[in-house]
Write a protein that binds this DNA or RNA. Sequence first.
DNA 1: TTACCAATAT
DNA 2: TATATTGGTA
Length: 290
Amino acid sequence: MSFIYGNQQTVDLIICDLFFPTEDSLLILQEVTSKFGIPTVIMSSNGDTSTVMKYITNGASDFLIKPLRIEELKNIWQHVFRKQIGAEHIRKCNNAQQVDQLSSYRAMGITEATATLDNEIRESNGTVTDIRDLRKSRLSWTMQLHRQFIAAVNSLGADKAVPKKILEIMKVKHLTREQVASHLQKYRLHVRNSTQTLHKDDTPSSSSYPNNESSILRTQLNSSSNSMYFDQDGCMEITDYSLPKDDLSSGSECILGERNNYSPECFQDFRWDSDKQGSETTYLWNFEAE
DNA sequence: TTACCAATAT
DNA sequence: TATATTGGTA
């Protein structure tokens, strides 16, 4: 804003990302349009109709949905040009254009990001072999993808599981080494925290906290938020991570970090009975949720 | 050059 | 929070 204040004569156009959750962009938009009338384009990965509406209503000249294609930027100059034509004319044009914009978004199928997240190509056994949804910029680690990741990690062994090898074993097209690396980083972090809190909470007597106190403790020790995983369900969680074996029901000896010599074929034909797609992503790491 | 990985950004 | 990107290092 200070830059804009200092350069209001020379700023022709503002492209502003939509910031969550503070929504600074909305404030900027309102201030800019009310004080300077500089055409402002809002940019976001969130294309919900309500969101787009809100910003258009508050004076945005356009609403671009990320990831952007270069063609979408080519015509941005028109907002500057349109402003120079004259106030009255602008209003009519803008109104008409806004409607067009929205309907064209809708026509392109961009509007509802909630539509279908099923961007995976699967084989008959449920194994994911490809991920592609060029419009979605972020990969979502679904349960099945995660299972294949875990299977790869386990087959390699804790020490040898590095992104490139995991990627090779997973055999998922369009999946990048960087994405695996990112996931691996988080996975290791999770494992580290888990085992750490496992040792901490080893004393059976202290394993059950009163509910009201546990929330207090949780806010004080940031690692203790994990303890809730393991108070009871620790083993269940671990079995979920370990490779799907013939009999997991026997349980008890499923140790993380224990290398098992699974060959890639072992999980090739593996199938989980229930393969519910949905908001499963949320529960990848947090099994305490239900 | 390539890949790891921790830190940091989005 | 979940995932992506960066930058130092091997």
